[in-house]
Design a protein around this nucleic acid. Structure first.
Lengths: 228, 228
DNA sequence: TCTCCTTATCGTCAATCTGACGATAACCCT
DNA sequence: AGGGTTATCGTCAGATTGACGATAAGGAGA
């Protein structure tokens, strides 16, 4: 199989689809490219995998560099390896999906130009094949909200049912019945852990605060395209 | 970001998790390594991505070479990039999952040593990190049977409800109620298209033959761990 | 040919789940 | 105190589910 002598050399990079929910929109973290090709164009944050570093570790490192935060949910999305996706050389890019709560500031990247949160609905054409990667990431996030507790990754450590519902509404682009959503979400085993505290962020009746539970899979799932 | 001059070189390979259902077991296609390291050990089929070829195309090519069949379902599984997964050099491997109906013969690979179908329950430790890749592939297949029409990829072009049920039973390792399975599966929109023909393969009442429909997602899904 | 065996397919029924939506509860503001 | 707002609980009819009975339609052997 492998023959160490004559393998064709590739560059391997990681690209990050970092999503958050802020100001009523699903936003992605984008950087503006500071060099050719695609100079001045928006792109996904990312960079080379180092020789002694695992690909996963490279993604975590880039994520920390870009957001200034560690501990975010990070998972592999897919690998993109068309021969001509980078005009300069053969680059295979492993894309990762990260979900973040509404972070204080976009954090200026260490190397990249200005980084900022852009609503995914307003993203036009990105550098390289990054538009494709972004939409794959968004679709993955949408799908995962159905059957995993990933929606909570968009919330801070403690959150209310209404905040979680807003996440679902914004990511899915639908509106959900607050009463049915409350019933379902509190009924899913291991999704939410009540802290016992309440909060009154909105003038209405104070809402109970929850922390994410230990469930890895939602059963029953929250189905998209339904009145929930 | 990218700086073409000083990128660290990697070898990029594809590894294939090819699954089929045969003789009452979920089986994977394995090859026996003909060279060091791991000489004589079982491994997943795979090989180098060529310079001018996309990663997806490399996977499809290797799959055709190994099985002698084209047109199988093939999807990206994940990418494995630990620094020391190959003792000789830095190799990043993009793994693919392929599902095949019970193919006539294991087909001797062009370059690899003998290939054969091995029940996944009997697979012990494979070369490299291939055990991990295989179990990721099996888990992906199990999960995808729930909400995609992928079970049909294990069947030939025309199949009966009972054949599809056997696929589910074997892959999930459970036993399903034939009556409820029949009701659900024929109730899912776009999953099955009746051919109008029947077959009597098993002594019992002849079963209607179906072809896979156009549905990409099963709604409602067939939930695992239930009496279906 | 008739009976039995096997598998396919259709029905039934109670328990559960779902979506729609009414009713309260508990806060804020004026 | 009254009105506005959000949270949470309840109710109810319709759909879905799992368990399982009943019937259909073939083959094998008596």
């Amino acid at each position: 199989m492998y023959s160490p002598s004559d393998f064709p050399p590739f560059a391997v990079t990681v690209d990050l689809v970092v999503l958050t929910v802020r100001s009523d929109a699903l936003c992605a973290l984008l950087v503006r490219r500071g060099e050719a090709p695609f100079l001045g164009r928006w792109a996904l944050p990312g960079g080379f995998v180092r020789v002694s570093e695992s690909v996963d570790a490279a993604a975590a490192r880039e994520l920390a560099e870009e957001t200034g935060v560690t501990g975010l949910h990070l998972e592999q999305l897919a690998t993109y390896g068309e021969p001509r996706r980078d005009p300069r050389m053969r680059v295979v890019s492993v894309a990762y999906l990260a979900l973040a709560p509404d972070l204080p500031v976009p954090v200026a990247g260490t190397d990249a130009a200005a980084a900022s949160w852009v609503p995914v609905s307003e993203v036009s054409s990105l550098a390289f094949d990054h538009s494709r990667i972004l939409s794959d990431g968004v679709e993955r996030a949408r799908a995962k909200l159905e059957y995993t507790p990933l929606g909570t990754a968009f919330c801070s450590a403690e959150f209310t049912v209404a905040e979680l519902r807003r996440v679902y509404e914004i990511v899915w682009g639908v509106s959900l019945d607050p009463r049915n959503f409350h019933r379902k979400v509190t009924g899913v085993e291991g999704l939410l852990v009540a802290t016992g505290e309440t909060t009154a962020r909105d003038g209405g009746r104070p809402a109970a605060l929850f922390r994410r539970g230990s469930a890895a899979v939602l059963y029953p799932p929250l189905v998209r395209a339904s009145g929930v």
